[in-house]
Amino acid sequence: MAQVRREPLADQAAALLLERIRAGEWALGEKLPGETTLAPQLGVGRSTVREAIRRLAGRGVLASRQGAGVFVIALDAPEDWDAVLRKAGIVAVIEARIAIETEAAALAAARRTPSDLRSIRRALADRDVHRSDIDSHVDADTAFHRAVVAASHNAVLLDLFDSFTPRLRAAMIEMLRIRRAFGDDADHDAHAAQVDAIVDRDEGAAAARSRAHLLTLRDALV
């Protein structure tokens, strides 16, 4: 029986349990052995087994049922979101941005508050003064787009955007280095037009301008 040998123990224990589930040791809907059985098999303590089970439950593989035990509810786990983002190419990242930000822009136009507008305008002005250095331009651009997503008042969209940010930053820096041109007046005007649509509560225009801007980025690469 394979045992855990490296840190972090809970991650290793979860990986070994998932490996055994994939191998068919427990069928769909079957109850796992108790912690006192699994712990010596994996070479870890009971608390580590509990944490490993929590991690697999979070990935939709296991479910704890109070008073009944832990059951297999899926025979595999989807790839970790962070790993998916790390592998994603620039075009895939921009297409995902289109899905998130187009809807967020429409919602921002419908729901924005005076405080939201101040944040968006401040971010637009900051973006305007960071046109010469790629890294600072990408950071200012990301802050602008986050301000728009935040104005949607949709916590799920904002969580998606925030989880996306590290890969987004790397992809955008890579893209701008390939293009070698960024931050021109047309680019700034496109962002300003999106702000105008949000100010005017024009949901259709806000969404269309967000989508058009991001499609321009994508089309420059394909």
Rank of each mutant, 00 (worst) to 15 (best):
A2K: 14
R5F: 07
E7R: 15
P8M: 09
D11W: 07
Q12C: 09
A13L: 03
A13G: 03
L16P: 07
L17I: 15
E19A: 12
I21Q: 06
E25W: 01
W26M: 07
W26H: 11
A27T: 00
L28W: 05
E30M: 03
L32Y: 06
E35C: 06
E35G: 08
T36A: 14
T36I: 06
L38F: 11
P40C: 08
G43N: 08
V44E: 13
R46P: 06
T48M: 09
V49H: 11
A52C: 09
A52F: 10
A52Q: 12
L56C: 09
L56F: 07
R59K: 14
L62Q: 08
S64A: 11
G67W: 13
V70Q: 10
V72T: 04
L75G: 14
V84I: 13
G89M: 06
I90F: 01
V93K: 03
V93H: 05
I94R: 05
T102G: 14
L107P: 01
R111L: 02
R112S: 14
R112N: 10
P114F: 00
P114S: 08
S115Y: 00
D116N: 08
L117W: 10
R118V: 09
I120E: 02
R121F: 02
D126F: 00
D126R: 15
R127E: 13
D128L: 00
D128A: 09
S132A: 08
D133Y: 02
D133L: 02
V138S: 01
D141E: 12
F144A: 05
F144E: 07
A147N: 09
V148D: 06
V148S: 03
A151K: 03
S152P: 07
S152C: 04
H153D: 10
H153S: 09
A155D: 15
A155F: 06
A155M: 10
L158T: 04
L160Q: 14
D162V: 11
F164R: 11
A170H: 09
A171P: 04
M172G: 00
L176I: 01
L176V: 01
R177W: 00
R179G: 02
R180I: 01
R180A: 08
A181H: 15
G183Q: 04
D184I: 02
D185M: 06
D187T: 07
D189R: 15
D189L: 13
A190D: 10
A192E: 14
A192T: 06
Q194N: 08
V195Q: 03
I198V: 13
D200A: 15
R201Q: 12
D202S: 05
G204N: 14
A208I: 01
R209E: 11
R211A: 09
T216P: 00
L217V: 11
L221D: 12
L221M: 14
